[in-house]
Design a protein around this nucleic acid. Structure first.
Lengths: 314, 314
DNA sequence: GCCGATCGTTGACAGTGTCAACGATTGGAG
DNA sequence: CTCCAATCGTTGACACTGTCAACGATCGGC
């Protein structure tokens, strides 16, 4: 046990103090380190309101404000007042910002490439496999899927990131049909103890029929099996509500999502709603579980507890 | 290839931005982060002269000076003027300093332990194995064993760290017999591109007979096979000088070193010198290599090239 | 219409990393 | 022996980072 901790911490020290793998500070960057990091994080999530960014990046409001001001001064980001709420500002990355980001990206690749250039192909593969294995296990050890009130800031931030990613990938925001809050019976948040990294909601659209909405994972958290865990947690929650069927709609362009749903046993069905952004519809029959598995780990621990019960139905 | 870089950098981001594994900053420490880190590094190497510390830690002279002043103000380290050279200061860690360090160590262990508490025993073992594998491969990819002039600052710093570790482990400095510079025919430095992490020297003690002196690895770099690589590099250098035998002396207390030598084929022999600190003596016959393997990787690249040839013999 | 909560900004300050300049000391050339 | 260049540690200056507190502007609910 004592030795196990030592091995972990030796790895830690190796990476922080010996090998510069993690230290992406000195890339001859046109930007100070914190700004470059912020630009990357914002670009992955934008367009998004500032206070949601604050949640998703787990940074201080003051630091974020100053960082965004600095990035805006260089015309790497744009901030516009949210038309629906003048207190909020929507942050977007400009074309110039994305261009600079591509440069930084290339430099980081070169640096990491040079670092592993000394390895034979087989060793390189072994290294990457070991790192992936470690990544998967570390995430498994740290990440929790927790139930949160639908209006909890973490849940709202992750859902906003979902809408932001759709807007970026579709080149336009979702139809009005899909905007605004949804009346979720269950709202789950994937979190690593520091910041939310995913979300998913379940609402009842007919007696005994649940619908999965706004399932999202931070791009950096994809490919680690978290999507399947989140989906299973939502299904478990549906069983807990007595549902025997779950439906969902999605879009052809969201290939990762489609693969996830089909892999989890969802079958295509005919259009069941008027969602103008949806092109595919799926359903899965839930076998009544003899024993509801507690896949949802951790206790409900909203930071701002809502005294009234979570609203259900639409 | 592009994807390989992505996997490496995703791991990087996971550890830096998502999982706090590497971020040992907020341990409720009685010390600011940089000072805690400095105290750890100094404790591993002390007693040692400041300018050698500067090399081994790869920190700016100004930062080191300020850090040591701060640690001294808290009575965690002691700095004394080097009696042999009034410009230099010898840094030592006080008992109070080691005590604080033990506290920090315990907190870090608790933190890492809490992080992996969610893993089953099998997964925990798999995680540690994957991290060890990654550590070994990363070190193999990055570390170089380079020939350096005996008076090169990196070589001198590593040798000084060797003497400092002996002094710490023996509870007294080495006998005068072993102090001072040695007339090395070959001086090798283990380096990761940022800072020296080991050294070894070879000198000729009789025609055709080499002796290995001052072989040392930074404690954080042990257990990764670097000792064997360094030893092989020294033997290759001896072959290059036409030696057919290598000898070395060591002390019963240096168990890791003894295991390394015996594992590499060194056989005990009778005392061959008057070294008062030595209790064990080893020799290995070198088969004349038909083809001298270039185990010493990298070209000779002293930062301060010595125009005169490296002195040989004693 | 008022009040408390939320949002973003700004000031202040400690900590950090880096460059330049400075005295003190050393070792060697002349 | 003297002088000079190099080395060593310290200090000043400055930019960058992270955090806390205070502030106006805005919003939502009673």
């Amino acid at each position: 046990m004592r030795d196990e901790l030592g091995r972990l911490r030796r790895f830690n020290r190796l990476l922080t103090q010996r090998i510069g793998l993690l230290d992406e500070r000195y890339l001859g960057s046109p930007l100070p380190f914190a700004q470059a990091r912020l630009l990357y994080e914002v670009a992955v999530l934008a367009p998004l309101a500032t206070h949601h960014l604050r949640r998703l990046l787990a940074v201080d409001a003051a630091a974020l404000s100053r960082g965004l001001v600095a990035l805006q001064a260089r015309r790497f980001v744009r901030r516009e007042v949210d038309p629906s709420n003048a207190r909020n500002r929507i942050v977007e990355v400009t074309a110039k910002g994305r261009q600079v980001l591509a440069t930084l990206d290339r430099r980081a690749d070169e640096r990491v490439g040079a670092m592993t250039a000394g390895l034979a192909a087989g060793d390189r593969r072994r290294l990457l496999d070991a790192l992936d294995q470690a990544r998967r296990l570390l995430v498994g050890a740290v990440v929790r899927i927790e139930r949160r009130a639908a209006h909890h800031p973490d849940a709202q931030a992750a859902q906003a990131a979902y809408l932001g990613e759709i807007a970026r990938r579709f080149g336009r925001p979702l139809d009005h049909w899909n905007q605004g809050p949804i009346a979720a019976a269950v709202s789950l948040v994937v979190a690593d103890g520091r910041r939310p990294m995913g979300c998913g909601a379940l609402r009842e659209i007919a007696p005994g029929v649940g619908e999965i909405k706004r399932m999202w994972l931070h791009p950096d958290a994809r490919g680690l099996g978290l999507g399947a865990r989140l989906l299973a947690a939502l299904e478990a929650a549906a069983r807990g509500l007595g549902h025997d069927e779950i439906r969902l709609d999605t879009n052809d362009r969201l290939r990762e999502a489609i693969a996830l749903y089909e892999g989890a046993g969802y079958r295509p069905m005919k259009r069941y709603n008027d969602n103008p952004d949806a092109t595919r519809f799926y359903a899965k029959q839930l076998r009544p579980a003899r024993e509801i598995k507690r896949i949802v780990l951790g206790r409900r621990c909203d930071r701002r507890e809502n005294p009234s019960p979570t609203p259900t139905g639409s």
